[in-house]
Structures are given as C-alpha cells and as structure tokens.
C-alpha cells in the first residue's frame, strides 16, 4: 500500500512538472525559443492565486480566484511576447534566452516585493483532505492534480486537433513562411501561444501551491521541468507530460530505496542518459525539422 501512495504522490508531482514542461514545449514549438521564465511564470501564477484567495489578502472565493488567475497569467504571457519578445525577432537565440532568464529574475523580485520571501500556502478547499478506499489513504489534493492534468491534456489535444486556431498554431510552427502566405497573422498567433503557456503555467502553479507551500524561489522548479521537457522530447506535448511523470515518479521511489542525495541527482542522471542515447527525447517529432 505504501508503494501505491508513493505512486500517487509521485504522479501528482510529475503532473506539475509535466504542465510546466508543456509550457516550455508550447513556446519552443511555436517560436523555437526556450522560455526559461516558465518556472517563474508558474510561481507567479501560484502567488497571484494566493493573493486573490487567501484571507490575509483579497480573500475571494477559490472558484473565482482560479479563473481570474488563469486569465491574469494568460495576459502576462501575451504581453511578454507582444511587448518584449517580439522585439527580439531576428536576433540570435541567445538574446531570447537571456531575455527570458532576465524576465524570470524580474518575476521573482516582483513576487518577493508583493508577497514576501517567507513560504506561504494557498488556502485551497482541497488542502489537507483525504480520500480513502480500502486501506489506502490518498490526499484529495494529489488526486485533484492528476484529474486536472488529464482533463487539461485532453482539452489541449482537442484544441490543437479540432479548432481553427489550434491547427493554425501547428501550421505556423511547422512552416512559418507558408503561414504568412496563407494569411495567418503569425505574430498574433505567437502571442496567443505565449498566452496559452501562461495559462498552463497558472494552472500548474495553483496545483503546486495546493499541495504545499510556495516562495519566490519555487520558480527554480522550472529547471527540473525543463529536464522533463528534454527527456520527453522538446517539441512534443505528450512527451512533456511523459517526461514530467517520469521525473515525478523517479524522485519518491529513489528517495525511498536509494536515499535522499542520490534521489536529488536522479532526474538529471536520466536527462544525461537520454541526451546520450536518445538525443531527441522519448517522443520526438524529428521529421518536423526536416523542412
């Protein structure tokens, strides 16, 4: 039964990593840039939710705070692209990467100024409740994380496969020039991808914060999520989720059976092994880069 609880909490962690990794992948696919502020966007999303719903701050009902947070973070993502990143168009990748790292610092600083550097927890209606069946006790928050992630993944699948905007996003990532020729407003599509990845980061942040405490340095989780994205195959959304879940599962099990120090090393050890033996990641779309 112990293993089952480890499995569920590992899955829940992995889902959060997977969601942040999806944010990386969304932006990488659309714009070929890596957004190193993705983890900090997650952290900011968590703090915005906390600021909106906690008694000490705005004290809005949780069900109001969540959609509001998602909207705010989508707007933050959209503006990051429309105001800052669009201006680096034509610059080298390094410029974009440095810019996103800098934006990450700014987010951390802003969060610290507004909400302080002490760890805080989100007052979520899910926190601290259990569900039991048989002899198994599972945290409601953890089950919730898994359910939401599955729902979001299915939703994203339908968005990309069935809606005009979703297909247009795929089209502009596969052949940007042709997208221009077809009258797809590529720049706006890019900004919308950033908005989507902001929204996903907000959901990841809310889910993460409802499982434990957060502080402005929580954004460094983004590094682990980036490893997850690379393990899964940077450029594949299912791969991102898979990579996240692998890391999420490996951590608690190796902590239990191999000890804490080795457990902290494991995600990166897997990353190194993947990069050596399958450099495009587990679920890569190599043919996408052929053209």
């Amino acid at each position: 039964m112990d293993a089952l609880q480890l499995l569920v909490s590992g899955l829940a962690n992995g889902c959060v990593y997977g969601l942040i990794a999806m944010g990386f992948v969304l932006i990488y696919k659309a714009t070929e840039a890596v957004n190193f502020a993705q983890g900090d966007m997650m952290m900011l999303g968590a703090f915005v939710a906390l600021g909106l719903t906690n008694e000490h701050y705005a004290h809005l009902p949780f069900v109001v705070a969540v959609p509001l947070t998602i909207l705010i973070m989508a707007a933050v993502g959209y503006l990051m692209d429309a105001v800052l990143l669009r201006r680096t168009f034509g610059q080298s990748q390094i410029a974009v990467v440095i810019l996103t790292i800098a934006i990450g610092f700014v987010f951390r600083f802003v969060a610290g100024v507004i909400w302080g550097h002490e760890p805080q927890s989100l007052e979520s209606p899910l926190a601290g409740r259990d569900i039991r069946f048989g002899g198994v006790v599972l945290g409601l928050d953890e089950v919730f994380v898994i359910v939401v992630t599955i729902a979001l993944t299915v939703g994203m699948y339908f968005f990309f496969a069935r809606t005009k905007m979703g297909v247009a996003m795929q089209a502009s990532s596969q052949n940007q020039m042709a997208a221009y020729y077809m009258g797809i407003p590529v720049k706006r599509v890019h900004s919308l991808v950033w908005a989507l990845s902001g929204a996903v980061a907000a959901i990841a942040g809310i889910l993460f914060a409802s499982k434990g405490s957060i502080d402005p340095a929580t954004g460094f989780l983004g590094i682990k999520a980036f490893a997850a994205a690379v393990i899964g195959g940077l450029g594949s959304l299912p791969g991102a989720l898979l990579g996240g879940i692998i890391i999420g599962l490996v951590e608690p099990f190796s902590a239990r059976y191999l000890g804490g120090d080795l457990a902290r090393l494991m995600p990166y050890l897997i990353l190194v092994l993947i990069l050596v033996f399958r450099p495009h990641g587990i679920l890569s779309q190599v043919q996408a880069k052929k053209v």
């Binding site: 005009k164 297909v167 089209a171 596969q174 077809m182």
Partner: peptide, 19 residues
Amino acid sequence: REVFPLLSVEENLLMGAYT
C-alpha cells in the same frame, strides 16, 4: 510548395481558408 508537413492534406487545404 511550402506545405505544412505534419498536417493532413485536408488540414493544409483548410488553412488556405484561414481568413
């Protein structure tokens, strides 16, 4: 040509009608 390589033929055609 400049087609969208991973989209289906029909999706490619429908992207022509994007506007």
